[in-house]
Design a binder for these strands. Structure first.
Lengths: 351, 351
DNA sequence: ATCGCTCATGTAAACGATTACATCAGCGAA
DNA sequence: TTCGCTGATGTAATCGTTTACATGAGCGAT
């Protein structure tokens, strides 16, 4: 059995109060007493029981992190950011991932009561709005990349503006028809990026119809979409515009973009000359595929870091002020896969 | 302030014991009493304070996960496996990542005392052996991919055998000279894979000298290594064998392999015809790069899952028996980048 | 009526810390 | 000597639970 404060007190011939005082660095304890207690602490290998301490101080310094079923680099980057900030703030992370539905998430929240001081939640499911009711008003919560939850803080990358900027960039590269590989339906990020694609397309290329391929943010779905695109008639041979392959495809994230390029390469469709491909997120790997992927940098780690800092702020009494969080603006990083460097293409050859 | 068990008891006109009993599903409570209490619980939105419960039951159902500075998909896959198993075992995860040195890790362990019932530690630093002293003998620990720590359980992917198998495969593809891109020094995994490379090279290709390029498991270091390899003289033009480019390169992990291929493609070295490239881990992306990456499947998620189950086992009294854990055997997944499909090459053209 | 049993419920002692308050020694001033 | 102050230390309440044990009601057997 592990040593408790009582063991130390008995062994040192002092009261538990004194031990507590030296453990917490309080003044008003004789140097010799302190030294003696410290020796006993060392000898007994005493470590304070943080659970017991938390019970009375009402500070656990733990925060719960609830994440959906995230994949690949997005997940690691997010955690990396959160973890780094938590370290700075001397906070600990209770991680609970892979939440399918709101019910499961509610269960996880219950499981955290009395353990955490605050919650960091990423609930990209569009129907997660009734989740706000499940959490009592007393525990501070910061959302990430979620649909607005009442007036609770919500930090998000601005997928809508990012998507519009990306489509605009493709148009400026001379691409006259642009498809989109969407992320999972009912996902907030997918939704925003799709919405941005639609709106910018309508604004910049009003004569063309949107072409949306359904994906799920994973490699394989990007691959499948790539196969579909490869099967369409190249522009030159096109007759019915509906069977014509677009000039460019904007994937909802980098992972799908890479999957898509894989399918294209396999079928001999050369990127970007025959079909430009761009992504979203700027995962580390984006710079290391061939051709290098043009994408929107989302700074996912920064998002995690900012969210945790925000939460730490309200924990320290900065208060839940400023309910409307500014959306983090993603910025374009132009590499090769968009065809920008090969110069603008002819906009629309006849026939 | 949140409702406590006392509030419920008072409100329902019963004792705290009764409330506790219904909350824990004990028998011996009148159905009508139970129903009444349940109603009050609902009305007051009472949730048991798990910290307080843990204090007396001595079961927190939390386990601490200590990870080094992991990157990319390896990290996500590992967490995914751990998390899935934890969910099954109704355990919660206290995550602490990015531990540079043993001192920082010791601090993290202290910070977990009294919160967790057991520890899952990945300490690939070779000098982490004195870490065992830091943890008292009473808390169960399971290591992952670490150098053996006394007789504590240690689950690991067999990097040594995996590396040998991979080198053997390259040889069987007809490659007569093989380089290696090593992971970070002082890392257990790097070390094992490098050792496997060396030993198998000595066994299968005794006439050739090993060529080891230093990397750090990240994309950029693989890229740098690729640049070095591209600069070497192609086999045909070779004079001094030390300046001759090898036939194949075995990267310490997939991430570096992908970085390496990126550099090669950029410099016009075609994979696998001019230089075969293989990796290790089989991250999801490995199947979606061009050419598709041949690698050793490590089942990282499976490792995490197994480690957590093992820990749950000793928690439930299965005991710390069977100290020597079998190493998980990685298996080769042959795709395109090794040149296997293009048939065996001429082993050694004259000159 | 008494005994003894079962079963629902209540009382109070833990768990391991923190901390307000009490106590007490030492000491200088009146 | 006595008072009051200061500063070190001890006592005990407290945090929100669980649970061993006590209590007491109901009831069939004697």
């Amino acid at each position: 059995m592990k040593a408790t404060i009582k063991d130390v007190a008995r062994e040192a011939g002092v009261s538990v109060a004194s031990v507590s005082r030296v453990m917490n660095g309080h003044p008003n304890v004789l140097p010799q007493t302190r030294d003696h207690i410290l020796q006993v602490v060392e000898r007994l290998r005493y470590t304070p029981h943080l659970g017991a301490r938390a019970l009375i101080t009402r500070r656990t310094r733990m925060i719960g992190v609830l994440l959906p079923d995230l994949h690949g680099e997005f997940f690691s980057e997010l955690i990396r950011g959160i973890d780094a900030a938590a370290r700075e703030e001397r906070l600990h992370l209770l991680l609970s991932s892979a939440h399918g539905d709101a019910a499961e998430m509610a269960a996880a929240i219950t499981a955290m009561h009395g353990r955490v001081e605050g919650l960091l939640i990423m609930a990209p499911e569009l129907d997660a709005s009734h989740l706000g009711e499940r959490l009592d008003a007393t525990t501070p919560v910061v959302f990430m990349n979620s649909r607005a939850q009442g007036d609770r803080p919500n930090l998000a990358v601005d997928g809508y503006r990012g998507a519009r900027a990306m489509v605009r960039h493709l148009v400026s590269c001379g691409h006259g028809s642009i498809a989109h590989i969407a992320g999972p339906p009912d996902n907030f990020d997918s939704h925003e990026r799709l919405r941005g694609y639609r709106d910018e397309l309508a604004a910049s290329l009003p004569e063309t119809a949107p072409l949306v391929l359904q994906g799920d943010f994973r490699e394989a779905s990007g691959y499948a979409a790539g196969a579909v695109l490869a099967a369409l008639r190249p522009r030159a041979a096109a007759c019915d515009p509906r069977e014509r392959r677009p000039d460019a495809v904007f994937a909802g994230n980098d992972t799908m973009a890479i999957g898509c390029m894989s399918a294209l390469a396999e079928r001999g469709v050369v990127v970007p000359e025959e079909l430009a491909v761009v992504g979203f997120d700027d995962i580390p790997l984006a710079a290391f595929v061939r051709p290098k992927l043009t994408t929107m940098r989302a700074d996912i780690a920064g998002l995690g870091r900012a969210a945790l800092r925000r939460l730490a702020g309200v924990l320290d009494g900065a208060g839940p002020a400023r309910p409307a969080e500014p959306l983090l603006p993603p910025e374009p990083v132009v590499r090769e896969s968009c065809g920008a460097r090969s110069g603008p293409r002819a906009t629309s050859p006849p026939g």
